Amino acid sequence: MSKAENCRAPEHVAIIMDGNGRWANARGLPRAVGHRKGVEAVREIVRAAADAGVAYLTLFAFSSENWRRPEAEVNDLFGLLKMFIRRDLAELHRENVRIRIIGDRVNLQGDILSLLLEAEETTRNNTALTLVIAFNYGARDEMARAMSAIAADVEQGRLKASDVTSALIDGRLDTAGIPDPDLIIRTSGEERLSNFLLWQAAYSELMFVPEYWPDFSREVFFAALERYASRDRRFGGISDKAVALGS
């Protein structure tokens, strides 16, 4: 058993699952094979997060910018999401996992949208791990939709400008009711957030790991949790250690 399984886990871990295509290219395989291998990693990490005591796991499955990819690849990604929900929903439900979907649902294909809604509704009352799937998600789009809704309320007299606070904005985001991520992990060695949870990441610990997503195993995940446990989170203040030294 790793140390991470014995220490206090972060409440919310968010992951940018990057590198499926490069994993496949490095092996001379089609990119679609990398995406299918990535789904296997999703299954492993969902179980690992639950075992570690993580309460919320957010996975960046499809960004609002991914529509720029070749149509065949987008269709393959959609097909994998459908397969994951149809194949894994019953097991996740048995494991008491709640599914939450964030992202823009407008213009999604009817069958995709109905599957997402079914996954949310079926697991609505579950109380173990909450699996948040960011699908057709972009943080700037999320904030623009929230601000537009707030502006409409001000315009219609339902709100005053002075009512607009950070807490109000939190409640209008797709992640309303979900705590901000304690830890954001990005795989594949890239070191950027790529329009992911920009508002919510204000005080998140960031971790960039070299493994491509298909190679992001349970062991690598627990090693990331161990590294997180050693960090000193100050939220703009000073650490307990610094206070002790100054006293």
Results as ranks from 00 to 15, higher is better:
residue 163 D to T: 04
residue 163 D to G: 05
residue 163 D to A: 12
residue 164 V to S: 03
residue 164 V to D: 04
residue 164 V to P: 10
residue 164 V to I: 15
residue 164 V to C: 02
residue 165 T to I: 04
residue 165 T to A: 01
residue 166 S to Y: 07
residue 166 S to Q: 15
residue 166 S to A: 14
residue 166 S to I: 13
residue 166 S to W: 07
residue 166 S to T: 15
residue 166 S to G: 15
residue 167 A to K: 15
residue 167 A to R: 15
residue 167 A to G: 14
residue 167 A to F: 12
residue 167 A to I: 14
residue 168 L to D: 00
residue 168 L to M: 14
residue 168 L to I: 08
residue 168 L to V: 06
residue 168 L to Q: 06
residue 169 I to F: 00
residue 169 I to H: 00
residue 169 I to A: 00
residue 169 I to M: 06
residue 169 I to T: 00
residue 169 I to D: 02
residue 170 D to R: 15
residue 170 D to A: 08
residue 170 D to H: 13
residue 170 D to C: 02
residue 170 D to S: 11
residue 170 D to Q: 13
residue 171 G to D: 14
residue 171 G to F: 04
residue 171 G to T: 01
residue 171 G to V: 00
residue 171 G to P: 06
residue 172 R to P: 01
residue 172 R to G: 01
residue 172 R to N: 07
residue 172 R to D: 02
residue 172 R to M: 11
residue 172 R to F: 13
residue 173 L to F: 06
residue 173 L to K: 05
residue 174 D to H: 13
residue 174 D to K: 05
residue 174 D to I: 00
residue 174 D to Y: 15
residue 174 D to R: 04
residue 174 D to Q: 09
residue 174 D to M: 07
residue 175 T to I: 10
residue 175 T to M: 12
residue 175 T to A: 09
residue 175 T to Y: 09
residue 176 A to R: 13
residue 176 A to C: 10
residue 176 A to S: 13
residue 176 A to E: 07
residue 176 A to D: 08
residue 176 A to V: 10
residue 177 G to T: 04
residue 177 G to F: 01
residue 177 G to E: 00
residue 178 I to D: 02
residue 178 I to M: 08
residue 178 I to L: 12
residue 178 I to H: 01
residue 179 P to R: 12
residue 180 D to Q: 13
residue 180 D to Y: 12
residue 180 D to R: 13
residue 180 D to V: 07
residue 180 D to I: 09
residue 181 P to K: 09
residue 181 P to C: 08
residue 181 P to V: 05
residue 181 P to I: 02
residue 181 P to D: 10
residue 181 P to T: 08
residue 182 D to A: 13
residue 182 D to E: 14
residue 182 D to H: 14
residue 182 D to W: 01
residue 183 L to S: 10
residue 183 L to Y: 08
residue 183 L to D: 10
residue 183 L to C: 12
residue 183 L to G: 11
residue 183 L to E: 11
residue 183 L to I: 12
residue 184 I to F: 10
residue 185 I to G: 10
residue 185 I to E: 09
residue 185 I to C: 11
residue 185 I to D: 07
residue 185 I to Y: 13
residue 185 I to S: 11
residue 186 R to W: 08
residue 186 R to K: 08
residue 186 R to Y: 09
residue 186 R to S: 03
residue 186 R to L: 04
residue 187 T to H: 05
residue 187 T to E: 00
residue 187 T to L: 02
residue 188 S to M: 03
residue 188 S to N: 04
residue 188 S to F: 04
residue 188 S to H: 04
residue 189 G to L: 05
residue 189 G to P: 00
residue 189 G to S: 03
residue 189 G to N: 02
residue 189 G to H: 04
residue 190 E to R: 15
residue 190 E to S: 15
residue 190 E to N: 15
residue 190 E to W: 02
residue 190 E to F: 02
residue 190 E to M: 06
residue 191 E to H: 13
residue 191 E to R: 15
residue 191 E to M: 15
residue 191 E to G: 07
residue 191 E to A: 14
residue 192 R to V: 07
residue 192 R to M: 05
residue 194 S to Y: 11
residue 194 S to T: 00
residue 194 S to K: 05
residue 194 S to C: 01
residue 194 S to N: 06
